[in-house]
Design a protein around this nucleic acid. Structure first.
Length: 319
DNA sequence: AACCAGGTGAGGA
DNA sequence: TCCTCACATGGT
């Protein structure tokens, strides 16, 4: 067991907003009674082990972890505490759509998470809601992840590519994955066989990395089935540091339609208004790319951050 | 009890 | 190239 503290003074950081904003799915919140009142305690299962984090007075986080590999330096990188949020905030100070979101979720950070876990998480996330995503990932981990101990309790780490590649589609489906089970297996296989090099994505520019994730090889089968533009953008933003990535899901489509119709133009607004039989927004790859390009140009360097604030604000409902 | 969910790939026009 | 639709399953 390793105890340490993490000083977040000098930079806006809100642990709960960050962990509740739909980027990561293997953190659980509880509460502890202290002399100062009730405070949140977050327990996270990371690739290197288990960690407990609780925000205290003066922006000091009290932490303990199961591994020496998870310490203050690690979490500083994971929570991206060195990001210049004040600069993002001042660049958005007069932006009508963002102002409210920044006020409500002041201190929300993008997280830099493990690429493999992030990729699997958002493959599984397609056409599902967040509670269910958490359930699927927790079942996958319980069934295929390595055991680890922390404070007398056992946890299961996120399963490795090899562990999932070795599983049968039926066994994967038993984790409640539905039709995503075959995607999960194929993606795990591609990573295991080296058809895609995840670490390389970090060094590529955004467009090349996106293409690497999405494209099929010469009309052949996709190397990464289940990974389209939206999933690729999530992976690039939440795990590869591509801060101009701008994932567009149904919530983003809604807020963009409402708050930025003048940027999108009539044609795209009409697309966003049209629904399929299933009452879903019809976002073809081309329209997705056009919207993302417009918003990227509008928000610039902080497009990814803008997306995350707008997304979370929309999901939390407007007061 | 419908309707929805951090979408995608297959198949047809 | 474009559009439409099925898809499993748990949440709300």
């Amino acid at each position: 067991m390793v105890r340490f503290t993490l000083d977040t003074k000098g930079a806006p950081f809100d642990l709960s907003h960050t962990l509740e904003s739909g980027q990561v799915f293997r953190w659980e919140k509880s509460f502890a009674e202290t002399e100062g009142g009730r405070r949140p305690v977050w327990l996270g299962v990371l690739p290197e082990g288990v960690v407990r984090v609780s925000p205290g007075r003066n922006g000091i986080l009290t932490c303990s972890s199961s591994s020496r590999r998870i310490g203050a330096v690690y979490l500083r990188g994971y929570f991206r505490l060195d990001d210049d949020l004040p600069r993002f905030y001042s660049s958005a100070a007069n932006e009508p759509g963002l102002r409210e979101a920044i006020r409500r979720f002041y201190g929300l950070h993008l997280i830099r998470q493990n690429i493999w876990e992030c990729m699997l998480s958002f493959v599984v996330a397609t056409n599902a809601n967040i509670p269910r995503i958490r359930l699927m990932l927790s079942r996958l981990s319980d069934r295929f992840g390595e055991e680890t101990k922390f404070e007398e309790r056992t946890y299961r780490l996120f399963p490795s590519p090899g562990a999932l590649a070795a599983a049968s589609v039926e066994d994967l489906a038993r984790c409640g994955l539905g039709y995503r089970a075959s995607f999960v297996r194929s993606v795990a296989l591609s990573v295991t066989l080296g058809s895609i090099d995840l670490d390389e994505l970090v060094s590529l520019d955004y467009t090349s990395a996106r293409d690497r994730l999405v494209e099929r090889s010469r009309g052949g089968p996709k190397t990464l089935p289940g990974i389209g533009r939206k999933v690729a953008d999530c992976v690039l933003l939440f795990s590869c540091g591509k801060d101009t990535a701008f994932p567009i899901d149904v919530w983003m489509a809604r807020v963009l339609r409402r708050a930025y119709p003048y940027l999108l133009g009539e044609e795209i607004v009409a697309r966003l208004d049209s629904k399929t039989k299933n009452n879903k927004v019809a976002l073809s790859p081309q329209v997705y790319d056009r919207i993302a390009a417009i918003m990227r140009e509008y928000f610039g360097r902080y497009a990814g951050y803008a997306q995350q604030y707008l997304y979370h604000n929309e999901r939390m409902g407007r007061p």
